[in-house]
Amino acid sequence: MGRYILKRLIWMIPVVLGVTILVFSIMYLIPGDPAKMMLSPEATPEEIAAKREELGLNEPYLVRLGKFLGGIVFRFDFGDSWVYNQPVTKELLNRFPRTLTIAVICIGLQIIIGIPLGIIAAVNQNGLGDRISMFIALFGISLPNFWIALMLILFFSVKLGWLPPFGIDGFKYYILPCIANAFPGIATQARQTRSSMLEVIRSDYITTARAKGMSELQILLKHALPNALLPVITIIGNGMGMLLAGTVVIESIFSIPGIGMYLVGGINSRDYNIVQSSVIFLALAFTFIMLLVDLAYAFIDPRIKAQFARKHKRGHHA
């Protein structure tokens, strides 16, 4: 068990470095001169050259990459914004709780709605309940979240006036963004829960339980559900990635000052360090969540535990 955790933790190092290097290298290819953009349009060529020197833009690719990487790894410092000259890290950390709140509420909705829908579908396979819940799920994964967000605003804010269309001053403000962002996750969760349940229902130990004379409800709760929910945990982790990315559009529609809106602002003002840092920050948050999910998985799933315990034993004998 300890070895699994250690292995998984060590794997984080290449992922963090890889993600940072990949995004930095993509953004390195950007045309245009950041020094020119940071100064006023009337800046002289000498001033621009001085600024380039100050920002270290004249240094070769590897030196710049090393500095950026070193800043993130050792000091968790993403550098300064090009347009506002403000430290990006502070802004990211201030905004992250709002983005995370939306993502966590959406995960909650995904679990509360998606898993029961999937169970209903699997238990009534090919019946009416299955058809209806899978049709809802198919619709859910086909809805563009930015469009559903606008439709929700149109209906609940403009027409009915029940909920605020933008801002973030309290619980009420989170309702529409979370619903809009949760749709694809709920649908994916329902579909995966269904197929995972169907696989379990067909296995021998369910037949055995039935032969023993257990009631269908008991079989469902004691045997089928615990086994079917294991793969479902992975979906929750992946869903987190989708949700964090989804907030980019959702936040800018609902004017929620989270990382997504920061990122879109960076695109519009051509402040590419904001774009680069926000993408890396969200990707790192996602990898960290996946790490937690994998570790949780190892604790819950006896098969992973057994796998490593066996190896351990064999090692001792040899």
Partner: peptide
């Protein structure tokens, strides 16, 4: 596969955003 793992650690739409910012 490790390369694919690293690319997949960046949510798809964010990767697409980064690339389109660069390419225009």
């Amino acid at each position: 596969m490790r390369l694919i793992d690293i690319i997949q650690s960046i949510p798809g739409i964010l990767l697409a955003i980064a690339i389109s910012v660069v390419l225009g």
